[in-house]
Design a protein around this nucleic acid. Structure first.
Length: 912
RNA sequence: GCAGGGGUAUCCGAGCCUGGUCAAAGGAGCGGGACUUAAGAUCCCGUGUCGUAGGACUACGAGGGUUCAAAUCCCUCCCCCUGCACCA
């Protein structure tokens, strides 16, 4: 809508390089996490950058030398996977990308050729980073594009490598085994994106315990999530129709289902199949439970799923509804099995499973309600259960306290091994089964290191958070972060420096890159080659360690010294428990105290028409269409004003349109004033408008100092628009146009951070030839509150009169107003200090009841003008006009006997 | 499960940290009026209940409590949302 005007100023800013600062004066360094460049961005991404930009622009106008850079993230598998899909002619992916390209291209042939180029992942990253940059320019962000880079560049690889050398040197890297979701057919780990419905129905990894029951020359493995009930095991369940396997692993023989065997191949070492059986082979045979060596029977049950855990289930009929019902179905194996209670719960008998099953009238083992009941009993026993006398060293302990200990104890005594299973049956997008595999030799960032945690806690204590409550949340996250795998087998990114064949994972390579912004353009400008970024060089630049030959890098060192640390990092709450926290950890580890982050601003998420944006709902709004469809300034104004920064922001078309009307109103107010000049003979209402404007500016600045731009804009945009409307009501349109000229310069500067294009345009049309973007933010100046108060006072009287009219239904001919005399003022002042003394001074009933009113309405706390009569007299014409009838002030006439009832600040009123 | 956040009038959404000035900001919607040939836009008034004088009553998820006074502080319960690890 404004695209011509907006483009004009964007080009001017760009052409004059006004957002490309050099070290000079007091600095402010603000960053927003870079986006992943695998497609067009939507307005959700725009929220963080808009906030960042508004702050950047505000701080610039407050006299800071502001750096606001950005770059592009390309690390990881998604871009690779997209290129693969396009190469494999995956029609879904091709259509998706075709639709993305249509946002930017209208020539079908060109789209095809670009799609063709996407078979190379680098081209996807390059194409979209270029487009994202263009989109951002259309929103008017004051970004310093000289700092741009992407995370697969050799320069960046050197930087990340350096970081990992530092971390390794400090002992913050670790190596070990790690369970992951995995596809056997693809031979790859799979992430949420690779799993069918993985985004809506998450798959997590569940750690089962596979209990070892001695059977023939090996062990039957029975999976369980409740190891503490092992003491009450009475039998083992097997599915008679499933296929089972005898396998060798870890030097022992195991019996498990065929499916479990496949999983174990990826969880244990050197797993080998020896023989296959049908499930009924086991039925009626015996195995030995590991604790006491009791012989227990193996029985058949249809509820046993061979594709869940090991395919054998240990049976604890006293506490597991499934087991109880299955045993009941076979008449407790002709009475030879008796449930063994091992957990006591108050208010329940010995056999909770029996109780709950009978209470709910469960008929057989396929009843779907059994899942819920199992859950219920689990909760009950976990939180309120005590281990019985037959539980060895655990007897008498609370279940919730020893559950983990039982697990450890069983593993240590070789009674059981771990078995990992997915939380639900899952397949990849191409339909291949997902299992849990253990990665050997996985490298981790050791976030559990107490010394590292301590440093990070200290950092958090030294920082500012917006909103402040997030400080404690960060402490919490730091406390329970554990080892985090930091390398992957595939994807774009930086090679792991300590072992071939690994790539540093995408979140792990994006922790301290804000430091890189300070030097990247200098490296390029000076023709420095990536391979020159040796450990010595980067130690010098970032840590100040001198070395022979450091002269060449002096400029980079100085730039880092000047700009670092980041003063404010802005991003959405989604980054809290990952990126933001890693950002803090890594800074705490690597940089000196005075180079650690100073502030973090956490934004709420953005939804569209009341729902989370998603392709399936069709409510995703691409950033690319915003400037053209609405105008950048309208978008920015909406983002800033429609919700507090720390709450959910809902993009609603109807609300955008209604905001647009407000913006149009603003535009016409300004434009209508351009041809007028300021009046020289200032009147009462002129002073009112000037002073209320100053007051609004003052409040706005106070809000903005805490980055509360919404509140600030409510003052200087919405409320002030209302002030102007009120002024016009009282003084007329022409006068309004004239008087606005007095404050128009200040007003435009005040709004410039949020609506920079309009501000720039009007600033120039007012005859200035500087950029408003580089002007100083207005100062409020002295505020005369008496003018403001007197206007409010008159409005309160009007409100009272209207209320009386409404209730009484009188059609007024004459209105009498009486202001309070000195006597009542005196009593009020007394009441403020000493209520009982005031009552003593009351001379009569009327005074007494008025005093009561004063106290109950707390009139003495109101800002009450001294000269009430004069104020009303000055506005009497206005009052008459508003009520269209005669208004008589402090007349000798007193037809309603109201004169004596006047209170300070609350004149009495009589209407005929 | 673990952690965090929330439930406010027709709807969206402020306020609660620092209790009173809160029938509760700001929008949207709805009703009435002005303007207009009309529609739209804009502006004004109204929008819990009752009330022939500026008031009273009932209200801020439910239930208790603290207090002269609670949407705001404390306790219990119910419900909802977000993140949880290789996914950027």
């Amino acid at each position: 809508m404004n695209s011509g005007l907006e483009k004009k100023w964007q080009e001017q800013w760009k052409g004059k390089h006004i957002f490309e600062p050099s070290p000079d004066g007091k600095k402010f360094f603000i960053t927003v996490p870079y986006p992943y460049a695998n497609g067009p961005l939507h307005i959700g991404h725009g929220r963080a950058y808009t906030y960042g930009d508004v702050i950047a622009r505000y701080m610039r106008m407050r006299g800071y030398n502001v750096l606001f850079p950005m770059a592009f993230h390309v690390t990881g598998t998604p871009i690779l996977a997209i290129a693969d899909s396009i190469r494999n002619n995956n029609s879904e992916m091709i259509e998706l990308y075709r639709s993305y390209l249509r946002l930017y291209e209208n020539d079908d042939e060109k789209i095809d050729s670009i799609l063709e180029s996407f078979k190379d992942p680098k081209n996807i990253a390059l194409y979209f980073s270029e487009k994202i940059k263009k989109d951002f320019e259309t929103i008017g962000y004051s970004i310093d594009w000289r700092k741009r880079f992407h995370t697969a560049e050799p320069f960046y690889n050197k930087f990340v490598e350096w970081q990992y050398r530092k971390l390794h040197g400090m002992g913050y890297l670790k190596k070990g085994d790690y369970p992951i979701t995995f596809s056997i057919v693809d031979g790859n780990p799979v992430g949420e994106d690779d799993i069918k419905d993985g985004d809506t129905n998450k798959v997590t990894i569940i750690e089962f315990l596979a209990v070892k029951f001695r059977f023939q020359d090996g062990y039957i493995l029975a999976g369980t999530l409740r190891p503490e009930t092992i003491f009450g095991v009475t039998n083992i369940w097997v599915n008679p129709d499933a296929i089972y396997v005898k396998a060798r692993a870890n030097g022992e023989y195991f019996f498990v289902s065929k499916e479990a065997f496949e999983k174990l191949c990826y969880q244990l070492y050197d797993v080998e199949k020896i023989e296959e059986y049908k499930g009924d082979y086991f039925v009626g045979k015996f195995a030995k439970e590991p604790i006491y060596g009791r012989e227990i029977p193996i029985l058949q049950a249809r509820f046993v799923d061979p594709d869940n855990a090991t395919g054998f289930v240990k049976s604890v009929p006293a506490h597991a509804p499934y087991d109880y019902v299955a045993l009941r179905d076979i008449n407790f194996w002709e009475g030879r099995i008796k449930p063994i209670p091992v957990i006591r719960v108050l208010d329940m008998g010995d056999l909770p499973a029996k109780e709950i099953v009978e209470k709910n009238g469960i008929k057989d083992q396929l009843d779907p309600r059994l899942d819920e009941l199992s859950e219920e009993i689990y909760r009950l026993e976990f939180y309120h259960g005590i281990m019985g006398e037959n539980c060895g060293i655990f007897s008498g302990k609370k279940v919730s306290e020893i559950k983990e200990n039982v697990k450890d104890w069983m593993i240590q005594n070789n009674y059981a091994i771990k078995f990992y299973e997915t939380s639900r049956k899952a397949v990849t997008r191409s339909g291949n089964k997902v299992i849990v595999a253990i990665v050997r030799g996985q490298w981790f960032l050791d976030y559990s290191n107490p010394e590292w945690k301590k440093k990070t806690h200290e950092l958090i204590d030294s920082m500012n958070f917006y909103p402040p409550s997030f400080s404690s949340q960060f402490h919490d996250v730091v406390d329970w972060l554990r080892e985090r795998p930091c390398v992957r087998r595939r994807g774009l990114g930086t090679n792991f420096p300590f072992e071939e064949g690994w790539i540093i994972e995408s979140l792990s390579d994006s922790t301290i890159y804000t430091a890189f912004y300070t030097i990247i353009d200098i490296l390029r400008e000076m023709g420095i080659k990536p391979e020159e970024l040796t450990e010595d060089v980067l130690d010098y630049i970032f840590l100040g360690k001198e070395f022979n030959g450091m002269e060449r890098f002096k400029k980079a060192r100085e730039s880092f010294e000047y700009w670092y640390p980041v003063d404010l990092r802005v991003s959405s709450v989604a980054h809290l428990s990952n990126h933001f926290t890693f950002y803090l950890f890594h800074h705490a580890a690597i940089f000196e105290r005075n180079k650690q982050p100073r502030g973090i601003m956490v934004l709420g998420m953005l939804i569209s028409e009341g729902a989370k944006m998603s392709k399936s709902k069709g409510n995703v709004i691409p950033l690319a269409t915003i400037a053209e469809k609405y105008s950048a300034d309208l978008f920015r104004l909406y983002i800033i004003t429609n919700a507090d920064f720390d709450t959910v922001l809902d993009w609603r078309e109807t609300e955008v349109r209604s905001l647009d009307k407000k913006l149009e109103r603003f535009k016409s107010l300004i434009e209508e004033s351009l041809t007028y000049s300021a009046p020289t003979d200032l009147r009462h209402m002129d002073y009112y408008l000037i002073n209320i404007f100053r007051l609004r500016i003052k409040k706005a600045i106070e809000f903005m100092e805490n980055y509360r731009f919404r509140d600030a804009m409510i003052e200087i945009f919405f409320n002030f628009l209302n002030d102007i409307r009120y002024y016009e009501k009282r003084e007329g349109e022409v006068r309004r146009k004239q008087v606005l000229r007095i404050i128009i310069d200040d007003w435009i500067r005040a709004l410039a951070p949020v609506i920079p294009h309009l501000a720039e345009e009007y600033w120039h049309r007012l005859g200035h030839n500087t950029f408003v973007s580089l002007e100083r933010y207005p100062e409020p100046g002295d505020i005369d509150f008496s003018v403001i108060n007197s206007v409010n006072y008159v409005e309160e009287i009007l409100e009272d009169i209207r209320n009386i009219l409404k209730v009484s239904g009188i059609n007024p001919k004459k209105i009498y107003i009486y202001t309070a005399g000195e006597r009542m003022k005196h009593l009020m002042n007394l009441a403020k200090q000493d209520k009982s003394r005031a009552f003593k001074e009351a001379r009569n009933k009327i005074e007494y009841s008025l005093l009561k009113q004063i106290i109950s309405q707390r009139l003495f706390d109101k800002i009450c003008p001294e000269n009430e009569e004069e104020i009303i007299r000055n506005s009497i014409e206005y009052i008459k006009k508003e009520l269209s009838c005669e208004v008589i002030l402090n007349s000798e006439e007193d037809p309603g006997n109201k004169r004596a009832l006047a209170l300070p600040c609350k004149p009495s009123i009589f209407i005929v």
